[in-house]
Design a protein around this nucleic acid. Structure first.
Lengths: 256, 256
DNA sequence: CTTGATCTTGCCCTTGGGGCAAGGCTGCAC
DNA sequence: GTGCAGCCTTGCCCCAAGGGCAAGATCAAG
């Protein structure tokens, strides 16, 4: 006959855990010896081992008596279900382990595959970190606010990166961040941007355009988180060129 | 900008979890809007996603800031360590899943491989369930009390099962459980048992015999949990035959 | 204007034990 | 026999990581 400590050591749990199982009625209280010590026999070893096996498989203690006391039919079903839950948990853990590798690359954690590809392609262009993060953060926000729209927009955006003139404009914007708003070079950048914008798809061509909030459209224009007087001025110059008659023009996809 | 509910849904957690992360200082409190609502931006999405990625990988919340704020060197080490812990946990879960299959066969859960093999071989002999469980429970108790001794004894015990006369005696004991203690057939059984015992290894031949408690030796004789007047009488008859001069004879391994 | 969903803070509840206190046993050494 | 270390007993509070509910403010839509 075993004491509680011997039983616990043999089952790989603590004596406290066994007392908890007694208190919850999961494991019957054994006989006491003359001095009040619990004394366990073979059946207690069997019962405890079954309990521990289930508990370690993630079964809540409250569910264990129902499982162990079930008749053969239901017992089999219960075990099969517990096994399948456990398989699911293992698969989840494996996926979570895979995600750990990307912990230092926020875009890989927070964006859908299309956007990850886009950001990888932007990276090789070699913009400033600040500009790249601004683009990334715009996508992260717009993906959180309107995942569907964001994913619809992405293929066209990615295709644009094959356009050397577009990439040149991106680089020019990058250079211009710190310029004064009256810098004369801004005119040339705005000219180039306007030429591109004219042959680009407009946001208003999207299906369900009327359901896209103005905020999302702003986000997709890529100016999130950068305060630049030169860029503000570039917005004005671009608007002049694109829609001379209006003062609140439609934003082009990929404008920037 | 997102509300707490939008952020939570996007990150796959509850709003309450986010408030907990704020309270623990893991995720910085964001700005509030005019009515006191929390408003989250892209950086909060990134931060939360990193936190959730670690938390779901099983990292305790208290350890998360230290991991995320570490410099590149330590960060890499931390991630590698977390990954390896996670791998270990996954392997453990797979082993636990395997054990679930044996939940209805106590000997497979509670005994070492040698004893499992022994019990499988006893099963095909076709003893009564009661007798078989008595043998099993004896091993379970002795394995819990003295695992080393029990495993040392097992090969000889298993070899005995190849002895047809020994198996015949086992079956005779099984038949005799309910007999009256003065049943004349008991004499023949005791004769056969004595012939076997004489050519068997004695417990006293074991290395470290003096460290084996008498209780363990009793357990290994296989009478655990069965109250049978006939068996008690068989014990007496056997002792007469084996050690006529003594009244407390050494128990033979495999006596039964 | 109402209604239902969402936000705020604050508080207690849960699971599966861990840890400590204060006292009683036990077994071994001296 | 006397110590003393190590085990056992009960009872109590504590922990992580939220869940749930209350009571009130706010928002969005019909």
């Amino acid at each position: 006959m075993l004491t509680i400590g011997q039983l616990a050591a043999h089952a790989g749990v603590t004596a406290k855990a066994i007392r908890v199982y007694h208190a919850k009625g999961i494991l019957p209280e054994p006989e006491r010896d003359a001095s009040g010590y619990r004394r366990y026999g073979a059946q207690a070893i069997i019962d405890l081992t079954r309990i521990v096996t289930l508990a370690q498989a993630g079964v809540p203690l409250a569910r264990i008596p129902g499982t162990l006391d079930a008749d053969a039919d239901r017992f089999g079903q219960e075990i099969a279900q517990i096994e399948s839950e456990l398989r699911t948990r293992i698969r989840e853990l494996e996926q979570r382990r895979a995600r750990l590798r990307h912990l230092d690359q926020p875009h890989r954690l927070c964006l859908p595959p299309e956007a990850i590809e886009y950001m990888e392609r932007v990276r090789v262009i070699g913009l400033s970190e600040r500009h790249e993060h601004a683009i990334r953060d715009g996508f992260i926000l717009s993906y959180a606010l309107a995942p569907d729209i964001t994913r619809i927009i992405l293929p066209a955006r990615t295709a644009l990166l094959d356009d050397t003139e577009y990439v040149a404009v991106l680089r020019a914007y990058d250079d211009a961040i710190e310029w004064a708003p009256d810098d004369p070079r801004l005119e040339k950048i705005a000219d180039a941007a306007a030429r591109i914008a004219e042959r680009m798809t407009m946001v208003s061509d999207l299906p369900d355009f009327d359901q896209v909030s103005p905020e999302t459209i702003d986000l997709l224009s890529g100016h999130v988180g950068i305060e630049s007087a030169a860029w503000d001025r570039l917005d004005e110059l671009l608007h002049e060129r694109l829609v001379p008659g209006r003062d609140a023009p439609t934003t082009a996809i990929g404008e920037m």
